[in-house]
């Protein structure tokens, strides 16, 4: 038993120093004003930014959904690959973009989506009218979905791979055709993967501030950017920044808790 505690200690220290303490500091800050007096004003102030919060949730939901609809078919067909070598190649191909810097990937999307970018040049050469995607919500959503796609694919892929072949056979045996097998067996049993992918991508999209800044054209201030500007920008107000951080964090936890109600496989435990 003693050994067990010993190996656990570094993680406890880590969690305490880098997760619990900063969260606690943010929590304290949220209840203070610039003269270090107790106040609830920061929280009351949040209501002026409901528009930003709603817009952020809208963007995030759209990007996460797009990500899911791209990821599920990919994961499903990849799980059907029979050869182990091709499976490995698939996993590497999926995780390869994660090895490049997130910022770099975002910049490269700018060169694709720009008004004179790669996409429009291709359209032009096909005699089609150019699209104005850059600096619109669509650009933000596309790039968010792209950047976090591997985080959606891998858990879903894993959960589909884990489904026992016997269960599919049992379904066929009980009279289910391929569509019914997908709907009644594969989809519900891959729910744990869908939900963990959803949680990770949703949180990442919600908190991400440079994608909307780089591709949103500066007109679309989202929550991440708003918080960042409270700490780093000209408006310097870390007390309000803390309050809105705490509020947004609770909101996301609430949303994820609600989505987890859809999970019927109780044997699986999720992180949040």
């Amino acid at each position: 038993m003693k050994k067990h505690y010993l190996t656990f200690t570094p993680y406890c220290i880590w969690i305490f120093l880098f997760i619990l303490t900063p969260t606690f500091v943010v929590l304290i800050f949220a209840f203070l004003n610039e003269n270090s007096n107790f106040t609830l004003e920061n929280f009351l102030n949040i209501k002026n930014y409901f528009g930003v919060i709603l817009k952020s949730l809208g963007y995030t939901t759209a990007a996460t959904s797009l990500c899911f609809f791209l990821a599920y078919p990919i994961s499903y067909f990849a799980s059907k690959i029979k050869s182990n070598m091709f499976k490995k190649i698939f996993i590497i191909a999926i995780s390869l973009p994660m090895w490049t810097n997130l910022l770099l990937r975002t910049y490269s999307w700018m060169t694709i989506l720009e008004n004179n970018g790669i996409l429009n040049n291709i359209l032009k050469s096909l005699n089609l009218s150019p699209l104005k995607i850059m600096n619109t919500p669509i650009a933000v959503i596309i790039v968010m979905a792209y950047d976090f796609l591997p985080f959606m694919i891998i858990p879903i892929y894993n959960s589909i791979c884990k489904i026992d072949e016997n269960l599919i056979q049992a379904g066929e045996d009980l009279g289910a055709n391929n569509f019914k097998i997908f709907k009644l067996i594969i989809l519900p049993l891959s729910m744990p993967g869908i939900l963990s992918g959803f949680s990770i991508v949703f949180v990442s999209c919600a908190c991400c501030f440079f994608i909307p800044r780089l591709l949103g054209g500066g007109f679309n201030v989202l929550i991440g950017e708003l918080i960042e500007s409270q700490f780093m920008g000209s408006v310097y107000n870390p007390w309000f920044g803390s309050a809105i951080s705490i509020f947004f964090m609770l909101l996301i936890i609430l949303i994820i808790k609600i989505t987890q109600k859809f999970n019927k496989t109780e044997t699986e435990n999720l992180t949040i």
């Binding site: 045996d173 009980l174 729910m191």
Partner: peptide
């Protein structure tokens, strides 16, 4: 005939129960 069109049912070796149901 595919298995789902046969009026035959199987009890599988390791039960193969649906864990989500």
């Amino acid at each position: 005939l595919p298995p789902y069109k046969r009026n035959i049912n199987t009890v599988f070796q390791r039960y193969a129960l649906f864990s989500h149901l």
